[in-house]
Nucleic acid binder design. Structure first.
Lengths: 308, 308
DNA sequence: CTGTTTCCATCGAAGGTTTCGATGAACATC
DNA sequence: GATGTTCATCGAAACCTTCGATGGAAACAG
């Protein structure tokens, strides 16, 4: 019962899965091919199970059981690393590498302000960035490829712990001279009656905007081919008179309008409703040893947003 | 960055935490005291952190950081063991030790039938039993002291995965000669108007019964001191004329009435409501490597309940 | 068909790590 | 202050991992 695989063996297995080649996997582990080969054979013997189908010619193929073991091995090595991380994080909070994922409707507008602030506040933090849509970020977070996310709630962020850092109200974005632009604030209902342009599917802002307007999720954009791929292109489409849209205040403060001629107006919510907007939040694996660090990142980010 | 603790070191640490004594911990690990001592010192040196306060006289004390490391170490060793378990479970489903937790309102009535059935269906399964209230079982499940639970839904079973195995309707239990006993079936409302006896707090059946009667959770029993500690004592109290109660059909089939003179009648739900009852379910850690095994346990249990 | 190349498994030897038993030092108890 | 308990330290022995070399199988080219 109590013969555990050695971490070495699991590392060899992971490397083999990543490289699909004994020789290259061995090189990646900085051992010789014979060592890696023997290590994996020993693992298979200990477990008394075939994890691989080998062949001289083709890349080795993992058996179904091998794939399961592989997944467990990743978890096991990660939780072993978590022991070390716990100590490192306790001794030296907010230093070392930190992999931050951020959604495209936040990143370009906040990072130019946030990064210098973080560099100043935590000079020993090495921040790696990845910009992607919520769904991909959450997957990367859960599989350990990212440490923290900066995204917009509400979202399906699974088992992650999250902490709101700011609210980000939506503004009505209108072409110059649009009749609604004459108003001080635009009622939500009036905006919803206009041709509404949106980001393409997969951007959480699309759903948040539809929700803010009280429209169903399935609603398409005007002309299916014209869903925008970024807020910048969306603004250009509004400037071109194709329709109107909602923009997060953060993006406007971040300069998304950039001389496009598009004007923004505050939204007036339907009476009794909350002002339409989204909540920016930090998220992390709730079992991460660095959770306390991440929590203490929130004020710095809130300051960067507020100070815009 | 990439120097991980060895599983050995973590085992030594766990043993020390369990025994509070280097010598005894070493014995438990089947190594000498010097080996264990050196192992833990090496771990502290590698992590570059004090995990223990040592003293010749008193048992060693874990530092706060030491306690955190300890918790991580347990997780790490468990996930290492999960690799092995994955293989063992795939090769030999439903063999070996299985630690089953069961709530007191199921156990005494189902196990006498269930155990022989399981022994017959899975002769190589070594079933360890623990009877306790839902809350304690769930805690034991999550900390790895139990593998599977047999409990009643709805309940707060946290992150556990669960699978319903049977519905267990409630029956009205009345003293012999009670006027409601003259009816073929007792309306819920009529029962709720009687003095209602319940199990003491902590038993999920208490809340399920109150819920079935449409009564608030805070409702006390008739005479605070008289909350019953088991279904058997509850039946005796009903027999003694102190009031009426609800019994799960499973318990009645399991012989809880046992010549007490108490009679049971089906409950007639308020029109439009579902028949009052509870759902019996299996639950397990959703990441357990043995999850497929546990799932395949459900039919056997359902059969044991149905065949009552 | 044959020589060449690529790939993975096997083997003995070298090197490193872990473990043991003995010993030493600190502390409490009597 | 004598004694017993507890944990750290040390050198030697056992153990395990790794290496480089070698072998055999499969694809490929000529």
């Amino acid at each position: 019962m109590n013969i555990l695989p050695t971490p070495q063996q699991l590392r060899y297995l992971l490397a083999l899965a990543d490289h699909g080649h004994f020789g290259r996997a061995a090189a990646a582990c900085a051992v010789t091919q014979s060592t890696l080969s023997a290590g994996i054979i020993a693992l298979e013997r200990q477990l008394d199970a075939a994890l691989l189908e080998r062949s001289q010619a083709k890349r080795p193929i993992f058996t179904p059981l091998g794939l399961e073991v592989l997944a467990r091995a990743r978890v096991a090595l990660a939780s072993l690393a978590a022991v070390t991380e716990t100590v490192a994080a306790a001794r030296d909070p907010l230093t070392g590498p930190l992999r931050l994922g951020v959604i495209p409707t936040i990143g370009p507008f906040l990072l130019p302000r946030l990064m210098p602030a973080l560099r100043h506040a935590f000079p020993r933090l090495k921040l790696w960035l990845r910009e992607d849509q919520t769904e991909h970020l959450v997957a990367a977070l859960e599989s350990g490829r990212l440490d923290v996310l900066l995204l917009a709630l509400p979202c399906a962020c699974g088992q992650a712990a999250s902490l709101p850092v700011a609210t980000d109200p939506f503004l009505a974005a209108l072409p110059e001279g649009h009749r609604l632009a004459a108003l001080d604030s635009v009622p939500v209902a009036a905006l919803a009656a206009e041709p509404l342009l949106l980001l393409e599917d997969g951007h959480c802002l699309r759903e948040h905007a539809l929700d803010a307007c009280g429209l169903p999720k399935s609603m398409g954009t005007v002309g299916e081919g014209f869903a925008a791929t970024s807020l910048h292109t969306l603004v250009q489409m509004v400037a071109g008179g194709l329709g109107v849209t909602l923009l997060p205040r953060l993006a406007v403060a971040g300069g998304v309008l950039a001389g496009s001629g598009v004007v923004v107006r505050p939204l007036r919510p339907a009476s009794g409703s909350a002002p339409p907007g989204r909540t920016l939040a930090l998220a992390w694996r709730d079992r991460s040893p660095r959770a306390p660090e991440f929590r203490s990142l929130a004020p710095a980010i809130a300051a960067a947003i507020g100070g815009g």
